[in-house]
Structure formats: C-alpha cells, structure tokens
Design a binder for these strands. Sequence first.
DNA 1: TATCGCTACT
Length: 457
Amino acid sequence: MNKALDRGDAAQTNNTDPRILHARTLKSPYTDRSDFNNLITLYSKSNLLSYSLRVFNQIPSPNIVSWTSLISAHTNSPLSLRFFLSMLCHPTFSFLPNQRTFASLFKTCASLSYSFTFGLSLHSMSLKLSFNDKPFCGSALVNFYSKFRLPDYAKKVFDEMHDKEEVCYSAMIVCLAQNSRCVDSLSVFADMRRRDVASTVHSVSGALRSAAELAAMEQCRIIHGHALVAGFDRNVVVGTALIDGYGKAGHVFDARRVFDENVSVLNVVAWNAMLSGYAQQGDKNSVLELFHLLETRGFSPDEYSFLAVLTAFSNAGLASESEKWIEKMRVRYGLEPGLEHYTCLIGAYGRAGRLEDAEKIAMEMPFEPDAAVWRALLSSSALHGASDMALRMAHRLLEVNPYDDSAYVIAANVLSASGRWDEVAAMRKMMKDRRVRKEGGRSWIEVKGEVHVFLGG
DNA sequence: TATCGCTACT
C-alpha cells in the first residue's frame, strides 16, 4: 500500500473530515501540490466528490498526478472521460497520461455501455505509449473487453502482457468465466497455478463460476481444496460460488455443507445460490423450507429468491401455486416479477398440461417473449404430444434465435413421434437456410488498424 | 512523487 492511501485511510478511521485538512492545507505556508493531490483522492474516498473538483480548481499549476487523481476520483462516471479530454485539450500545458491514468479510464469505459469506441481509442493510445502490457493497464483493459463481450481481444491483451501477476490472471479468468468460455477459464487458472502466481478470491471465484457452468464436479472439488489451503473458504463470494458450483453439479449435499459451515457470514446472494441448487433438483420442499428459514433469520427475499421458488414450481408443474407466489411477491413483498418469473409461470402451466393458458400468459404478460419463453412452450407442447403447437413454437423460437439447435431437436422428436416425416425434413431445411453466415466479428488486426485510423496514427 | 486494475445468485 502506498503513502497516499495510508494517509487517506488513517484520516478515515480517525473520522477526520477531509474539509478540516482542506482548510489547513489552504492556510499552511508549507503546502505543496502533492497535498492538494492527496486531498482530491481523500475527498473521493469520503464520498465528497464535488469537493474533489473544487480542490483541483484551487491548484495553481496542476500536473499529471493532479489530473489522474481527478480522473480516478470520478471512475465509472462520464465526467472522468470529460476531464481526460479537457486535459488533452488544455491550451497551455501538455500532459502526457501515464499508466495510472489509463487504468482508471479503462475501468470507467468498462462500466459505461456507450463508451466502447472511446475505450478502443484509449487502447490505441496506450499501445503507442507502451502501457497496455503493464499489469494495471492490462488488467483494466482485459476487463473492458470482457464487459463488451470480446473475450478473444481480452485474451490477446493478456497474452501480450509482461510480468503477469495475480490481478492480471484474475481479470482474465473472470473474463472468460463471464463470457461462458469455461474450459479456457479453467485452463488459465491451471496455468496460473503452474506458474506459481498466487491465486486471489477473485480468480478462485471466477474459476468456480466456470466449473459451475460446466457442472464439473471434479473441478469444483479441486478448487474447493485449493480455497481451503489458500484460506479463502470463509470468503462470502468464494463460499457462494462453491454453493452454486456444487448445486449446479447436482451435489446439493455438498452445497449445503458449505452453506452450513459458513452460514454466519453469508448474505442473501449465498442463500439464493443454495435455494436455486435445490430448485434445479426439483426439490420444492427444501426450497420452501430454506425460504422460510431465510425470513426467520431476518433476511429479505429478493427477486432471485422468488425465482428459485418459481423454478422449483415450474419443474414440478405447480401452476396455481406459481400464480399464488407471483401475487405474493408483488403484493406482500413489493417486488415486480420480471421476465424470468413469468417464464417459470409459463413453464409451470405448460408442464401441468395447461398449454393454452401457458401461451395466453406469454402473449399477455408485460414483457416481449424471448427465446427462453418459446423454448418453455416448445418443450411443454412436446412433452404433451401437441405436435402442431410444438411446430408453431419451434418457428417462434427460431425467429428470435436462429442458432437454437434445440428447436430442431425437440420439434423433430415430437413430429417424428406422430409420423410427420415431411415436416421434419422441412424443418431441417429451414434450419439450414437460416444458418446465415456466422459473423464471428472482425479480426484483431482489423480492429487494431481501425483504432490507429481513428486517432490519425 | 502524490495518482491505478480483478470476484458470487436467472
């Protein structure tokens, strides 16, 4: 930890109002620029952002550290990008951004949905200044590409980085996990261990998320063992990822053991992970029991808690129960049901064989049906041998998601069961025609080129 | 010479 943070933390723990320090700084004849720079950071850590800008404006001749302090004080806000542009456009001084400036800016771009091209041009600048292979910049850049769903670009940045330390690996592992590249994510985790780079709660929870998505029991166990050795097993996030992983792998007893061992530190997210583990097993009784316990312990159930309950009901085909809980969620808990809750409701009606009601809900609910809704209706109609409806739903599903091969598989099954071979063949042909050229995106080289053009380089 | 990056529940 560096000096500035030490000072900042000390001031916070002593409950010193930064404004007192500010007044002293202004009065003292010994004040230099670094005192102002520290104040900017101190104010932002105390959630007094407007004062950060005020201090900055009081600095007689701000330097790059002042600018970077101001920019990072406004991380995740568009103001941070504006300040950066002001700095570049400054008429009298020429400030060259450094690695820390870029690290903050990449973080901001990652958090703003509209700042993709801004991030690309920053990447180009950092390439020219040779910052993108530095650990701090590189990890922030990996995260940036991760948030914009470009894991291959992130991997390219990662591969070109020098001195990859634990945060770089964490960022990459988490990126691949968040983008459903589970096997790659686990292999980077393995690579990290081979190279003796320390793991962190971030990399461990990222790897666990991948193992969970793969429902890979063996990997969960291995990472669990590692978490125990590394002393991360009491961490809430790691614990939650373990509960989720064991649950998804179908080992609810292992999930429950982790849950019980850590219950004193767990929050509602962890409870939800346990609930959804039971729900995926179709263990409705355990879900309801745990839901009740959650309330007894003083937690408030949220949308995810209700989703777990409704998932269980959907798997069990409990239509009227689902209806009741949706109502309860809205009226007694003040939570508005989302698309996923309606999808469960539709699934429950469908599984119960009330296909028309299920379709009616899909048409009348306050959301546009998505692929999951059509898939629920498709599997329900297939389950009950309603081949006409199944065919219709398969078409709707393919309209929203032309690449969904499950549409073909499920519809083909029910159609062949009724001997409708011609329609199976037609379906197959339609799938082929729909399979338009997959646009895998432009190559890395192309994007790099574009970035240089963008900056006139 | 102060400023920086990565986690869990559909």
